[in-house]
Design a protein around this nucleic acid. Structure first.
Length: 423
RNA sequence: GGAGAAAUGGCAGAGUGGUCGAAUGCGGCAGUCUUGAAAACUGUUGAGGGUCACACCUCCGGGGGUUCGAAUCCCUCUUUCUCCGCCA
């Protein structure tokens, strides 16, 4: 969430920049500023009331000690009034904070200046494209047909065991997926990211820390018995490593990577858009995450984009990079680059990575700060991205690397798969 | 799952109703000594809010309560440890 102080000091700017999301924040911002005003003045009143009662208590203590019981009892009576007043103020303060938070939760992050205006994914700005779209043989198949033909992914079996959106990978399909996971993790650790294995279920506080809660609980599977949530992305547990943390400036930057399955309840779309591996309830993803000094975060974002580019180039997949427009930008992000691989047989682009700078938006809620060289506490910037999301990379490989004789495995993966062809 | 014990500053560890934001030790920082370092000695050293700066307020696992006053008493939750049971 945004910092109130920032909203107060940059009111017009915040409103104007949020307009890029087609988000009219005028009313909310007025409300937030008013509530904050109220919060601070109530806090001051409460502090003063407490100071009075502390002083009285001390006095009573001293009177008892020196045996002046009567005087002490007289003072005691005086405290009841202050106590009542304090209670009222406390109540009011809590209500005000609650209302203020409710408003702040609803305001999305302020887009970076270079975020293009626009409403939908049509308005995203392509910034880069690489890799040749292969000329496939006559009768080339979409990946779900290939999966069936070579018996490497079984969607029906998943239906039987669990339900739609939970595929079963078999034989070389399973091996290829594992190869990709290991390959991604190796690339990430080579680039300086520390590998983590994090829990796949998180508690309420964690869901709240990264913004899935409140409001967006519908996208997560909820284990009500224990009040835990299955993670929709490693971002949730990985970012919450840093909840309520005060770092030293020298500890920055922090770079971590981790592989997790991801669970998404979202009902999704229909037809070809959810066909095969295009959209699943459970999928695998390798995530990269950084905690940065505010001055360095955009440089870090570029670094992450370059890193993902390098991986896709090695895989020799045709892909493009989009700078998301205001309307398509995620709630918590200030700037996002999406990577899309071209699905030749489906003739469409599939999102395989999303790399974002959240600036202080997550850090504020997480209370993730660092002590700067002046000894002041400052919010860190957080960034994350996929590197990469498995199913669509798999789909991309199956479709783009298909030949009449079978699927030709990209060369960089050979040490990981141990085979060069799925036939 | 059952029985018991515990949770205090970066760490260790005292403190069981009133100058306790908290003894002491270690660690950190600064200084003395030294050519330099170590040792020794001296001083200093938690966080958040608030203020121009003070004042002041809050924080002894979380939440609630008793009391004029709570680290200290009560309730509750969480976590950790020991023992038993179960188990990949």
């Amino acid at each position: 969430m945004l910092q109130v102080a920032f909203i107060r000091d940059h009111k017009e700017d915040v409103i104007n920049r949020l307009a890029k999301r087609n988000f009219d924040a005028t009313e909310m911002i007025e409300e937030a500023i008013a509530l904050d005003e109220e919060r601070r003045s109530t806090q001051t009143k409460l502090d003063n009331a407490k100071a009075d009662s502390n002083a009285l208590s001390k006095e009573i203590g001293n009177l008892f000690k020196s045996g002046e019981i009567q005087k002490a009892n007289l003072l005691k009576e005086k405290t009841t009034q202050i106590k009542e007043h304090t209670k009222e103020l406390e109540q009011h303060l809590n209500n005000t904070i609650e209302s203020l938070d409710q408003v702040l939760y609803k305001i999305p992050n302020v887009p970076n200046d270079i975020v293009p205006a626009g409403n939908t994914d049509e308005d995203n700005e392509e910034t880069f494209r690489e890799g040749d779209i292969p000329k496939l043989y006559e009768g080339a198949l979409p990946h779900w047909e290939l999966a069936k033909k070579y018996d490497i992914i079984d969607f029906e079996l998943g239906n039987k065991i669990t339900g739609a959106g939970f595929p079963v990978y078999k034989g070389k399909g399973a091996r290829l997926q594992r190869a990709l996971i290991t390959y991604f993790l190796d690339k990430n650790t080579e680039a300086g990211y520390t590998e983590y294995q994090v829990p796949h279920l998180v508690n309420e506080a964690s869901g709240f820390g990264t913004g899935q809660l409140p409001d967006k609980e519908g996208q997560m599977y909820h284990v009500t018995e224990d009040n835990l949530y299955l993670i929709p992305t490693a971002e949730v547990p990985a970012t919450n490593i840093f909840r309520d943390t005060l770092l030293n400036e020298s500890e920055l930057p922090i770079s971590i990577t981790g592989y997790t399955p991801c669970f998404r309840r979202e009902a999704g779309s229909y037809g070809a858009h959810v066909r095969g591996l295009n959209r699943l309830h459970q999928f695998d993803k390798v995530e990269i995450l950084r905690v940065e000094h505010p001055d360095q975060s955009y440089k870090a974002l570029e670094g992450m984009v370059e890193h993902v580019k390098m991986i896709l180039k090695e895989l020799k997949l045709p892909y493009r990079i989009l700078r998301l427009c205001g309307g398509d930008l995620g709630f918590t992000s200030a700037l996002t680059y999406d990577f899309e691989v071209f699905s030749t047989a489906q003739d469409r682009w599939l999102e395989i990575s999303s790399v974002s700078n959240f600036e202080t938006f997550q850090a504020n809620r997480l209370k993730l700060r660092f002590k700067n060289n002046d000894g002041k506490n400052e919010l860190c910037h957080t960034l994350n991205g996929s590197s990469l999301a498995l199913p669509r990379v798999l789909a991309g490989i199956l479709e783009n690397c298909q030949t009449e004789d079978g699927i030709k495995i990209p060369e960089v993966l050979l040490p990981y798969t141990g085979f060069d062809m799925i036939s």
